[in-house]
């Protein structure tokens, strides 16, 4: 399977970077073809510009070279894997902006007769790998915005039988090194079996 891994964390020494590495290693071990988009390393600019917003409602919604490149990778992929730390119950701005700017009309969906027609029918798996500072019950109480965004909003536009996977480590700052290491191993194993 062709898998696009999208990673969003400012530091290469972070636990999130270790998770992205484990995801890629696991996928390769499972025989998948993997591409990694590391948004911070690429210097991705997340704010949709005025020019892009004006183009959004036209038939040529993509006006930037970086977005065209990322959109081509989305079309290439059969699975999308997102690796990020949960901030304010959602995606870091750089990843939110990746959805805003890359998954535009003509890539993620098209409007025909004022109706949304999904275009991500090539995507058969949506995988979220994330860490939370909070405990599981607090995440549930506050609504788990990141999961809603990826597993509900994005899922509406993917293949009909698209499967959703969610791998989360809660209370990142207090669980200890052993639990962290176990989670990295789990991510690698699960993704090898995707």
């Amino acid at each position: 399977m062709r898998v696009l891994v999208v990673h969003a964390h400012p530091s290469t020494e972070s636990f999130s970077a270790a998770l992205a590495g484990a995801a890629v290693a696991g996928l390769r071990r499972g025989g998948h073809e993997v591409r990694l988009l590391d948004l911070y390393r690429e210097g991705f600019r997340p704010a949709m510009s005025a020019e892009e917003r004006r183009a959004y409602d036209t038939t040529e919604a993509i006006v930037s070279a970086d977005v065209a490149d990322h959109a081509a990778q989305v079309r290439w992929a059969e699975a999308l894997v997102f690796v990020y730390p949960t901030w304010w119950s959602g995606l870091p701005a750089i990843l939110k902006g990746w959805l805003d700017r890359v998954l535009v009309p003509g890539v993620a969906f098209e409007l025909r007769d004022e109706r949304v027609r999904p275009l991500l029918r090539n995507i058969r798996h949506v995988v979220g790998i994330t860490t939370y500072g909070s405990a599981r019950r607090f995440v549930a109480l506050t609504g788990d915005g990141g999961r809603r965004t990826l597993h509900r909003a994005l899922r509406m536009l993917t293949a009909r039988r698209c499967r959703r996977h969610w791998f989360a480590l809660h209370e990142l700052d207090s669980v200890g090194a052993e639990a962290r290491a176990a989670f990295v191993r789990r991510v690698e194993t699960e993704l090898a079996g995707l």
Binding site: P46, A47, M48, W87, W88, G90, L91, P92, A93, I94, K96, G97, L99, D100, R101, L103, G145, R148, T149, R152, A153, L154
Partner: peptide, 18 residues
């Protein structure tokens, strides 16, 4: 509302300031 929530520029305002 884009992708269920605020545009990235506002999410980043929260990420950075809060």
């Amino acid at each position: 509302t884009w992708w269920g929530g605020a545009p990235a520029i506002l999410k980043g305002f929260v990420d950075r300031l809060f």
